[in-house]
Nucleic acid binder design. Sequence first.
DNA 1: AGTGTATGAATGAAAG
DNA 2: CTTTCATTCATACACT
Lengths: 188, 188
Amino acid sequence: MEQQTQQQIEDGGNNQAAGTNNRWAPTPPQLRILKGLYYDKGFKYPTPEQIQEICLHLKQYGQIEDKNVFFWFQNLKARERQKLKEFRNVPVGGSLDLNFGSTSNDRSTDRSIDLNFGSRVGYGAEGSIMEQRGEYHQEIETLPLFPMHGEDILGNMKTTSEGGGGYGGGSHIFLELSLNSYRDADMA
Amino acid sequence: MEQQTQQQIEDGGNNQAAGTNNRWAPTPPQLRILKGLYYDKGFKYPTPEQIQEICLHLKQYGQIEDKNVFFWFQNLKARERQKLKEFRNVPVGGSLDLNFGSTSNDRSTDRSIDLNFGSRVGYGAEGSIMEQRGEYHQEIETLPLFPMHGEDILGNMKTTSEGGGGYGGGSHIFLELSLNSYRDADMA
DNA sequence: AGTGTATGAATGAAAG
DNA sequence: CTTTCATTCATACACT
């Protein structure tokens, strides 16, 4: 596609030191562990806490940061999804019927999003938002992601008790303010 | 922290060929203004009215809609928070705990900007529906988001030179909102 | 050398 | 507000 002239625009005040632009790449052990988590264990939705845990664990195999783990999972998920999507588009040509059913991707692309900004009216003391997908809930919280064998150095990690605290958020309000003035304008 | 080695060049032109580009991206002036609001002024929780105001102001620098502004603030807040969460157990060297006391949202960085030199003072007659978050509502109501000289409407300023530089642009025309039910008069 | 592919990183948009 | 999805940019590396 048209590769527009990438150039560094002004940065409002937060510019990284030029030159230290090393992009992380997983070391073989790191990659192996990550893939093991993703494919073997079906572990695809790490919480921030689990990201830290994983990252900490992987640190022994090379330099790594939280955001690397985060992006790694994000990208892997996105790309698998993307592959499936374009696979559906592939003209198979034959009478072969690839029935995928309806992918769980049926997002109604409703344009009138609920803009609930501002307007705090009433407040439900919501609670844990720990629900992962409608699928496997891995027992997080205190279950070690890495069963100690071989490459485990953390005997136990977070025996921490998040219970009770967390953040003071968790309140969806949905006042249906609906700034529906959004015409198509986009995506048309 | 955000290393933006990449940034798509603005469309400020605006090219916007039909079809291919459907995702909004802030033009450099827009980005600068948004960041200025967020970081400099500590302005992080715009009300719908303010979103409209900001959006209207930014329209001079390229196509933009309310929801873009809304999402921009949402994302920035979310990602900053996420970053804090992911790094909140960085080795601080001790168990020193900085108690933040109340659920700090120090958006009260109101610096008493009163650069509203001799202008309209009659807008915003709503009075008391400014209640936002039950507690720390900013005393805005009619705050001058843009000190009315910052960016001229003509939009012919340099994006890389600002702050202290004497730019010849004195047109102050906008800031008229508050009751006009705008349609999306997006410039083409 | 150029070109294509895999993948890290960034971010707008949206769901819940 | 939190989390996830989608799209895109950028770059390392392979391939011919």
